[in-house]
Design a protein around this nucleic acid. Structure first.
Lengths: 358, 1351
DNA sequence: TGTGTATATACTGATATAAGTAATAGAGAATTT
DNA sequence: TAATTCTCTACCGACAATATCAGTATATACGGA
């Protein structure tokens, strides 16, 4: 098996480090052979035909085998490694100096030793003119910018949903266009987020993801329980649709870690009252086996009586868990036109804290 | 002096009451652990010697006791029953037989005389059901329940009480004859041969016998003593019964118990001549009533001339008649639009509406008229019409007049109080109706922002549904439901109904509806939800409110039965028989609560119905056409909300409804439950007997802790709590009134709708920050969202505060001019609180300013001085000497007068630290100075004496810290010491030193240290604040010196400072801290101890035995304190609204060791300050002072302050003259005797080696791994053998070597390591407590002369 | 009429939910190896 | 057993998470003997 994308210049460096332990709470896929398959499946070259002028923004790269392979595959103009962790950053710096000797760092790796969690990190990228991506139309995915990230840590799940929201708001790195994101997330997150209507684990974020992006499962790890069929914790319809690669457990550190690689491509979505949409989804999800008509009243007093009739019959009787993104948008529109739609106070979930003096 | 000594002795007597004979009766007889240890000291060394190759006493087998075999086959059967989950129709005595035995497990310790049945939950359930079935006269079902109950109870004695309940209710039926009852009893006896009748049973039979005029037959058949005892069950026999009995000539005096003797003579005399009844001595008898209620039977016998008309008539007619008078009686409605609450008006109309009906009020009016006609009387028509009793009372000149007025008012109010408790709900409804009809007449329904007519609409819409639901429930309870005729869905619904139906039928639909509505409104914005509430809370609260109403009504019925047909001498009868609550209750193991499950189910169905019908008018403007549309939308909806990532069910009010409730035009309706009382509360005589006339209450606020209940009951039954009750009764007997002048000023500012001092403004639409672009950067977005959230949070908080204040003012308004009392009860540590929520003297500055003593006392020179000092205190000048404080006010007297004369425009008082109380004080002074001699002023204002950092005062006394004691004013000084400032100075010193050494942080902080920075930390230190918590507090104080992005720097500085503060406190209160640590350590050991007599029923975690023992101690007053911290199990309950999680209090839950440990030191100290307060209260009460307290702030009349101060100090000294910690230790050592403790000791220590050796041997024999549970079991067996009667068993026990026995005599203290230390081994050792730390040299008697101790 | 199997129902336990990790440190408990 | 990861961090008054699903245990229905 060839590992085409593995940079030979780095081999000795990888070897000298051995299989590192410092995962910092992140999970990682460590086997080049496996990663090669992923890269092949992603078919990156056709998506980034002029990759030599592109930028890769690589967030929480960690040990970075995957990063380096993508790098070698695409050979971008800039490959920024946003790595707040001191040890990892130091290792990358060492690696780069290693490459300086070998290839004068023609890989264009650059370490940004700042937290990938903090938004200011990214403001600084443009402020300090480290990169200067082009602004592209929102009709098609951006072909000069790629986000790669490892969100397998504790806060990863929330950060992932925030990145998705950024793609909708067209801020952060998504201000440049519909930027593709290749993100490694925990299996628990992936099996909730990438679902189709009716799947039991589907949650609010999954609905948002469906509405706002085209997201595909690229690869998943084997199931922990050998007696279960592979992919048992995922929505079977998604598995059929996306045909993800199955990674052996041994390829992941810490061993047995369950992860999934997903490819997120933002959609071109008009402006919505996102707070309202989220509120509707959230409230419906509280009792997902109930029909829409019944749940209307949970959103706002009088909604059932007044808005129920405005919904098509098939929607009204549909179980909430069976609703598609489209369905949600339709319901959203009805609410949005209603004079008594929920106010900010309700959609924000205001709570009273103890106001007593000292 | 002598008196004090006697009292002290009594306290001591109480202290020891808790352990005693019962200790001996416990599991292990006579010989105890320590004795064993002493004898085996020598033997154990031989065993552990090298020669002991076989560990078990020489032989190769395990001696005669088959210990290993037992261990191998040990199989624990858990006592289990699920009866508590069944609805009434599923209960079947033939199948519902619980598995396992109902033995008493005890709670934290088996030495204490408290009862715990494994089936307590089922018992409770069945008893409630029985009660309900009897009330609804469903005797067949009730009998079913009764039989099931029998199989659960631990002793036949307990069963008799339930049987009596049945017999009593059944016997009350006219169709049931004495013969029937005897028949039933015989039948029962046949089934349950162990069943014994008790005196109450006989009393019940007697009642029937009297009815049938065959009572002498029964009486003659019984021993005289039995007859005497049974007659004390007055609630069973009834007043009429007694009357008949006493009139029977054959019934001789020797049948009569002492407490009824006078009544007996009364009846006998009455039959001779009626003239005696109208003797002129009447008033003197009545005069005794105020104090007599504490001991009703000791007051002189006489009759009152006031009783002529039957009170039952007034009861039913008063409401309808009062309704008519409402418009004319409305007082102040124009002054205070905002607090125009209909509920309160309803209450007031109840309060006001009784005058014509009862003779008591007629008499009062007569007196008032009489007084009015006196020359220069200020009583005018208006005052009379407004019923400003306080103004009238105040205007009276002679003590005789006052006395008489008070007496008559008391009688008058007794009637009104009863109305309030029994008929308040009806009054509220009538009020709604009235306003609704008024509004309809004016045709103004749509535009009205008045809430009450809307509530009436809700009520009218709700009622038919409730009626229908009740009909279904009745059918179901009567067994008239044929499930076959129902659809599947209906059947499920009916099954759900079965869980609440027995209770639903007990209350009339009108009350069900009104209470649901009012309770819902009351709960607005509680529990952290804006414009709504947690649905769980709502459901449970509604259920509880219903239970309270039902019980009050039932009690009233019982009482009416007592006096039903009596037309003469009702007052006297009442006084003699007391308003004792059902005496039977005191005997049942659990107080018969319906329980959370029933509450939530009842609340669920009622709220579901209400949600369905409650509408609110709304309108909107069509943006396109500009047309305005009006319509009705549901007023409330059920939804959910996430609270830190967890779902909670929420009932949310529609915005329009919220606007109606919180605006300044409309006020809430007040649920007339647990309001301040109009008469002196019934004195506490038992844990569940005292306070309101009819509404039941417990003396301790217990939340989900049957253990606390068990201890409380045991102590109460043993009469250990009488001193506690005495103190509590003093608090309850303080009469108050509302400060009308302050109230009017508050009302003025309230009505402006603007912010003023404690009054939040009305916010209609919050001002949002300017919106940001759709594609703003994430940072900006989050920032924006944060701002919006903050603003919304603030407005929501304002709204809820306004709502809350409104509710308080509503109640205050209802009691303007009234005399009111606050019944108190205690938290589990003994701190006292008024039972009445919302409006009480524990509130904030604004609320407190509304309180005046009803009684006035002439100031005198000292009193005047104290009023001034008090004003200075509330003004914020309280750190200087008393003379300086007085001087400060003298200097500012003009400001004081000006403030009082024109409070709206003159601002001086508004600058005070506590402005509202300052204003009240200004009024008082100004009025006093209107007299030629202000010292002659009759003052009503309560003067406060506050302990300076009371917790630390107690700690300092316990620890004997000389400097610490000085700093918290235990030592006489010429000006008050300020401990916060002192600590601050200490810290400053270190900071200066560090700064001099070049410490950057210290240099930065050098000039920023203030008292305020350290205050909170010093204060919370008593509560055991951790380093992290304190850092957070100090960060808040330092935040102003740092930029937003300098969080890390801020934290760094805060941490440095916190370290110093902690260090300084530790220095200053060295002894105190040693005590604090000791208490913490003791709590830790207790809560991590293992009871060897407690069998672990879950085998799966036998390596982690649960810790079952709470920290329990007895206060010097005899109150047992049980820390109620256990891991709570949650039970999901299905209701009509949603599933709710209810904490299941009956789970045999292990303790929450962490909480036990952290909370014990503060709880212990609080139990001491509570003791101190109650002792002081009692003494003040005896000295005829008015007394009130807010934990460590004691209040009395100005003139009495000096005397009270003396009292406070003396009680403090006598409290601390004992070695309290020693006592706690002794108590612990008794209670937790023989318990084991889990510790980790160093691997390589000799002790560890010994233990390993024994364990290895055991494992070998056992053929499997040895669990901790096994070790505990072995130890238990060893203890049993050692304590055996048989010498051979004792010997076997001595020879038995267990992992515990090999180290029990080795000193392992120095080998103990923390559990996270890796090279340690876990071992069990007997529970021991660390030695008590040495006390400092502070001499407690110095307190006697410390003026600033409380000031 | 008693027994055995198939299906319906009831019960239990696990899991997810939200969504700037706030800042920090240190003990103790829980979980995993 | 040993090592690691997670949790929590101020007392009381004044409390409070729920819906769903998967898997298992029990009850009912049914059919055949």
């Amino acid at each position: 098996m060839s590992v085409r994308s593995l940079n030979p210049a780095l081999l000795s460096h990888f070897n000298s480090y051995g299989l590192v332990k410092f995962t910092q709470g992140f999970k990682n896929v460590m086997q080049p052979v496996i990663l090669q398959k992923i890269i092949d499946k992603l078919d990156l070259k056709s998506k980034y035909p002029e990759s030599s002028s592109m930028d890769i923004i690589d967030i929480f790269p960690g040990y970075g085998i995957f990063s380096s392979m993508i790098n070698y595959e695409l050979k971008p103009k800039h490959h920024l490694l946003i790595e707040g962790n001191k040890d990892s950053a130091a290792m990358w710096k060492e690696r780069i100096s290693h490459l300086e000797n070998k290839s004068f760092n023609s890989e264009h790796f650059e370490v940004v030793n700042k937290s990938g969690y903090s938004w200011t990190t990214y403001d600084d990228l443009t402020k300090e003119k480290i990169i200067n991506p082009t602004f592209q139309s929102f009709d098609k995915p951006h072909d000069q910018l790629l986000i790669v990230g490892n969100l397998t840590s504790n806060f990863g799940e929330s950060l992932f949903t925030q990145w998705v929201m950024c793609s909708y708001y067209r801020n952060w790195l998504h201000k440049y266009g519909k930027v593709r994101m290749l993100v490694l997330i925990p299996q628990e997150s992936a099996s909730k987020f990438i679902t189709m209507s009716g799947y039991s684990k589907r949650n609010k974020s999954a609905c948002k993801l469906e509405i706002l992006t085209n997201t595909k499962l690229i690869a998943i790890t084997e199931h922990k329980d050998r007696s279960k069929p592979q992919g048992a914790s995922y929505d079977p319809r998604v598995l059929i649709r996306d045909q993800p690669l199955i990674l052996p457990n041994s390829s992941v550190i810490p061993s047995g870690g369950q992860v999934a690689l997903v490819e997120v491509v933002p959609k071109n979505i008009p402006e919505l009252d996102m707070a309202l949409l989220e509120y509707i989804i959230q409230l419906f999800m509280y009792k997902s086996t109930m029909p829409v008509d019944y749940m209307l009243e949970y959103i706002s007093p009088g909604a059932r009586e007044q808005l129920g009739p405005k919904l098509p019959a098939h929607l009204r009787t549909k179980q909430v868990k069976l609703l598609t993104g489209e369905d949600y948008l339709e319901i959203y529109n009805v609410f949005n036109a209603w004079p008594f739609k929920p106010t900010l106070q309700e959609t924000m979930g205001i709570t009273l804290e103890d106001t007593r003096e000292l | 002096m002598l008196k004090g000594a006697i009292r002290r002795q009594r306290i001591r007597a109480c202290l020891s009451g808790f352990h005693g004979p019962n200790v001996r009766a416990a599991v292990y007889r006579s010989k105890r652990y320590s004795a064993t240890a002493a004898t085996s000291t020598s033997t154990s060394t031989t065993h552990s010697g090298p020669g002991a190759t076989t560990l078990f006493g020489g032989g190769s087998s395990l001696f005669q006791y088959p210990l290993i075999e037992e261990l191998k086959s040990r199989n624990l059967a858990e006592s289990k029953s699920s009866i508590h989950e069944k609805s009434f129709d599923q209960i079947d005595p033939s199948t519902d037989i619980p598995s396992g035995s109902s033995t008493n497990l005890g709670w934290s310790s088996s030495y204490d005389p408290v009862v715990r049945s494994p089936f307590a939950k089922d018992e409770l359930h069945l008893n409630s059901l029985l009660e309900a079935m009897l009330t609804s006269k469903n005797f067949n079902r009730a009998q079913n329940v009764l039989h099931t109950l029998y199989s659960l109870l631990m002793s036949p004695d307990t069963f008799v009480y339930s049987l009596n309940r049945y017999l009593e209710a059944w016997g009350a039926e006219e169709t049931v004859s004495l013969e029937d009852m005897e028949g039933l009893l015989k039948d029962m006896n046949k089934r349950y041969p162990s069943l014994r009748r008790n005196n109450r049973t006989y009393a019940i039979l007697l009642a029937k016998a009297i009815d049938e005029h065959v009572h002498m037959d029964l009486i003659r058949a019984l021993p005289r003593k039995t007859v005497r005892d049974m007659l004390t069950y007055v609630d069973v026999i009834g007043g009429d019964g007694l009357n008949t009995l006493f009139s029977t000539q054959e019934f001789t005096q020797d049948y009569v118990p002492d407490e009824l003797m006078e009544l007996f003579h009364l009846v006998r005399r009455e039959t001779v001549t009626d003239e005696d009844l109208h003797s002129p001595s009447a008033s003197s008898i009545v005069s005794a009533s105020a104090s007599a209620s504490a001991s009703p039977l000791s007051s002189p016998l006489s009759s009152s001339p006031l009783s002529s008309s039957p009170s039952s008539a007034s009861l039913s007619s008063s409401i309808t008649s009062s309704k008519e008078t409402i418009p004319t009686l409305d007082k102040d409605s124009e002054d205070l639009l905002s607090v125009d609450s209909f509920g309160m008006q309803a209450i007031r109309s109840t309060l006001l509406g009784l005058q014509a009906e009862s003779s008591e009020s007629a008499k009062l009016m007569e007196l008032i008229e009489e007084l009015k006609s006196e020359p220069d009387s200020i009583i005018d028509h208006l005052l009379v019409q407004k019923r400003d009793y306080f103004a009238i009372y105040r205007s009276l000149k002679t003590p005789e007049q006052k006395k008489k007025f008070n007496e008559l008012l008391e009688l008058h109010n007794r009637e009104r109080e009863r109305e309030l408790e029994i008929r308040g709900v009806d009054a509220a409804r009538e009020k709604w109706k009235h306003e609704y009809e008024e509004l309809i007449k004016r045709g103004a329904m749509q535009v009205s922002r008045n809430l009450n007519p809307l509530l009436y609409q809700w009520y009218s819409a709700l009622l038919p549904y409730v009626v229908e639901e009740q009909r279904l429930c009745i059918d179901l309870v009567n067994g008239d439901v044929n499930y076959d005729e129902l659809t599947a869905e209906e059947a499920t619904q009916m099954k759900k109904r079965a869980h609440y139906a027995p209770y639903f039928v007990l209350i009339k639909p009108e009350n069900l509806s009104v209470i649901t509505i009012l309770e819902l409104l009351r709960l607005n914005s509680v529990g952290g939800i804006a414009d709504g509430m947690r649905s769980t809370r709502a459901m449970v609260s509604v259920g509880k409110a219903l239970e309270l109403d039902y019980k009050a009504q039932e009690l009233c019925k019982t009482e009416r039965k007592k006096y039903s047909k009596l037309t003469k001498n009702q007052q006297d009868w009442k006084r003699y028989l007391g308003t004792r609550k059902d005496s039977e209750k005191k005997d049942s193991i659990v107080d018969n609560e319906w329980g959370s499950v029933v509450y939530s189910k009842l609340g669920g169905i009622l709220l579901a119905l209400l949600l369905h019908v409650a509408k609110v008018p709304v309108s909107y403007k069509d943006e396109a056409t500009g047309e305005k549309h009006s319509m009705e939308l549901p007023a409330i909806n059920l939804t959910y909300q996430y609270l830190s990532g967890q779902k909670v069910g929420v009932l949310r009010f529609h915005k329009s409804l919220v606007r109606m409730m919180g605006g300044n035009e409309i006020a809430n309706s007040v649920l007339p439950q647990l309001l301040p009382m109009l008469v002196e509360p019934r004195p506490w005589t038992a844990f569940n007997d005292g306070g309101y006339l009819y509404t039941p209450n417990q003396v301790i606020r217990i939340k989900d802790s049957p253990e606390t209940f068990a201890y409380l009951k045991a102590a109460s039954d043993r009469k250990n709590l009488d001193l506690v009750y005495d103190g509590l009764n003093v608090l309850g007997s303080t009469a108050w009134t509302v400060n009308k002048r302050v109230f009017e000023v508050i009302g003025h500012y309230w009505n402006t709708g603007e912010e003023f001092i404690d009054i939040p403004p009305i916010v209609e639409e919050p001002q949002m920050p300017p919106s940001i672009p759709h594609n703003a950067e994430p940072m900006e977005k989050f920032e924006y969202q944060k701002q919006v959230r903050k603003i919304l949070n603030e407005t929501a908080a304002l709204k809820s505060q306004r709502c809350d204040i409104n509710y308080k003012l509503e109640i205050a308004r209802g009691f303007l001019g009234e005399k009111m009392y606050f019944p108190h009860n205690l938290d589990f540590r003994g701190r006292a609180y008024p039972i009445s929520p919302h409006f009480n003297h524990l509130g904030n500055d604004l609320t407190r300013s509304l309180f005046l003593f009803w009684e006035g006392k002439e100031l005198g020179v000292e009193g005047l001085r104290w009023v001034k000092i008090h004003l200075s205190n509330v003004f914020g000048i309280d750190k200087v000497s008393l003379d300086e404080r007085e001087a400060f006010i003298n200097k500012n007297l003009d400001h004081v007068f000006a403030s009082a004369r024109d409070p709206l425009n003159y601002d001086w008082w508004k600058k005070a630290d506590k402005p509202w109380q300052a204003l009240a004080c200004c009024f008082e002074l100004e009025e006093a100075y209107q007299l030629e001699d202000p010292t002659k002023y009759n003052s009503h204002i309560p003067i406060h004496q506050d302990g300076s950092c009371n917790g630390l005062q107690h700690y300092a006394a316990l620890g004997g810290d000389i400097e610490g004691a000085k700093q918290v004013n235990l030592t006489p000084a010429d000006k008050p010491q300020d401990v916060y400032q002192y600590v601050c100075n200490l810290v400053q010193k270190t900071v200066d030193k560090d700064a001099a050494d070049g410490n950057e942080i210290a240099i930065f902080l050098q000039d920023k240290l203030t008292r305020k920075v350290v205050k909170q930390t010093v204060m919370t230190n008593v509560y055991g604040v951790t380093f992290v918590g304190a850092v957070a507090q100090i960060e808040k104080q330092l935040a102003q010196y740092f930029n937003k992005d300098e969080d890390d720097k801020l934290a760094q500085h805060a941490r440095y400072l916190t370290g110093l503060v902690f260090q300084s406190i530790r220095e200053l209160f060295e002894g105190a801290h040693a005590i604090q640590d000791w208490l913490g350590e003791a709590a830790k050991r207790i809560s991590k101890s293992i009871r060897i007599d407690y069998e672990e029923s879950t085998a799966n975690n036998s390596n982690k035995p649960s810790h079952m023992s709470s920290v329990i101690w007895t206060t010097p007053l005899g109150l047992p304190c049980v820390q109620p911290y256990r891991v709570t199990k949650k039970q999901m309950v299905n209701t009509n609204l949603q599933d709710v999680a209810i904490t299941d209090p009956f789970g045999a839950a292990p303790v929450d060791a962490r909480k036990q440990m952290a909370a014990f030191p503060p709880n212990y100290v609080h139990s001491l300050d509570a003791t101190h307060m109650l002792l002081t209260a009692k003494e003040c009460g005896e000295e005829k002072m008015s007394f009130a307290a807010v934990h460590d702030s004691y209040w009395t009349h100005a003139v009495d302050v000096n005397q009270m101060g003396e009292c406070i100090r003396n009680k403090f000294i006598s409290l601390h003259s004992d070695n309290l910690i020693r006592k706690v230790k002794d108590e612990f050592e008794t209670r937790y005797k023989g318990f084991l403790q889990v510790v980790h000791i160093k691997n390589e220590s000799p002790a560890a080696k010994e233990v390993r050796k024994v364990r290895r041997a055991l494992v070998k024999e056992l053929g499997r791994a040895l669990t901790v549970a096994d070790e505990v079991y072995i130890e238990k067996k060893r203890q049993e053998l050692l304590n055996s009667e048989k010498p051979n068993e004792v010997k076997a026990g001595q020879e038995l070597i267990t992992p515990v026995s090999v180290i029990e005599n080795i000193n392992i203290e120095q080998d103990i390591v923390s559990s996270s230390f890796h090279k340690g081994v876990q071992v069990l050792i007997p529970l021991k407590f660390p030695p008590i730390p040495d006390k400092g040299d502070f001499d407690i008697s110095l307190v006697r002369d410390s003026v600033y101790f409380f000031s």
